[in-house]
Design a protein around this nucleic acid. Structure first.
Lengths: 213, 213
DNA sequence: GTAAAAGCCGAAGGATGATTCATATATCAC
DNA sequence: GTGATATATGAATCATCCTTCGGCTTTTAC
């Protein structure tokens, strides 16, 4: 799978008739299913098409190549997660530090867990594809939202808010990923639901007390 | 790259002469270099062999297939990191909670950063290969070490030590990964060095005060 | 009803790249 | 020095799979 300039990753054409939007949806879903059952290394255009109940030719009507398909699926998913974060940040703007922390964590977990197990499969896509600019875009939006949120806390002040923002984002994204990806068992879910809010709150409180050198 | 039973991932034969150990080392290093410069999707046996200065045939003398090569490189790296963690846990056994937290974080960061940027490239290997059992092995060793460490703290007690262990491990592994993989800039390193110890300490102190419901 | 547009099909072409093996060279044991 | 063993070579083989394209079917517009 050769690397391709990002502009070439866009869909080939957009569906006009209801028939074709159903096709595109089916292809998206089939992609995730194949990812889950076979892994990215054995995700072939034929397999995805077969799972979606369409022919390869049809797939190539909407996606110029395999990478564009994977890119599209990842893009859509990431966007939904970012929107969830942005909404939560807007909702908790001006709240007390502990409340905003809990709200942010809960929103992120809700978004991530809603799409299980598909969200796990997508981690592998990002690794295979050249997704640097997509990811960095998403992270930028996330950081902007979190930073605005933190700045609005009435009961906290941060010496270096950019660093704290980066840290909170890494804590959230990283810990949840690490907690899920090697076994998304009920125990893991319980751990995430109970401990991540605790971590985030404890860190923010500590950082707010001048913990940033 | 088809999935292959784990037993088949073992090296084909071990080097006997010094000449061949040098070859194997060169192949390992070349693998990481190709991973870094071309990405896993364009990591071909030919490319690795060329970078290592040997022929493909030679590679196949030591590794039954491409996956075994990747597996070996990942395995070796993970082992070094785990050993670093185990040593740190042993060293801080019985220390005060804050000290053990700082020691653990520092040891992990040292190990991870020592191999930059290679350690970043290896994240993508784990995603492509079937490494479930390798990873779960490594995590089990890590968790065992951390749990023993936490249990030995004289100034802390945890209601559910298994959960706290899982949480600390996820925090550490996840946050560091998230902090590095999308840009391993100096700023990211500073963030990790200053904020991760803070997070870990704050969480452990909070969890020790009956934070585990 | 019918022509144009949109959507769909899947066999065939072509490129890539993993793996083998017959052969050649280097090292070791004596 | 010599046979035995270990190591190295890389062209040829073989399998996989991405992508195209000419022709077919369905939908839409009038």
């Amino acid at each position: 799978m050769p690397v391709v300039p990002t502009d070439a990753l866009k869909p080939r054409k957009s569906p006009r008739q209801t028939r074709s939007t159903a096709t595109v949806t089916a292809i998206h879903e089939a992609t995730i299913q194949v990812l889950l059952s076979d892994g990215i290394a054995r995700l072939t255009t034929t397999r995805v098409a077969q799972r979606a109940g369409v022919s390869v030719g049809t797939m190539y009507q909407y996606f110029p190549h395999k990478q564009a398909l994977l890119y599209a699926v990842l893009d859509q998913y990431l966007d939904e997660v970012v929107v969830a974060i942005e909404e939560a940040c807007a909702r908790y703007k001006g709240a007390r530090l502990c409340d905003m922390s809990d709200g942010l964590v809960r929103a992120y977990l809700d978004a991530k867990l809603r799409y299980l197990p598909g969200s796990l499969a997508l981690y592998t896509v990002a690794a295979d594809l050249d997704t640097a600019s997509l990811i960095s875009d998403v992270l930028q939006r996330t950081d902007r939202a979190i930073e605005r949120l933190l700045a609005s806390a009435p009961d906290a002040g941060f010496a270096d808010i950019a660093t704290v923002t980066f840290a909170v984002r890494a804590l959230l994204v990283g810990t949840v990923r690490a907690g899920l990806e090697n076994d998304a068992s009920p125990a893991a879910l319980v751990m995430l639901r109970t401990q991540v809010p605790l971590m985030c709150r404890a860190y923010l409180v500590a950082a707010s007390r001048g913990g940033v050198a």
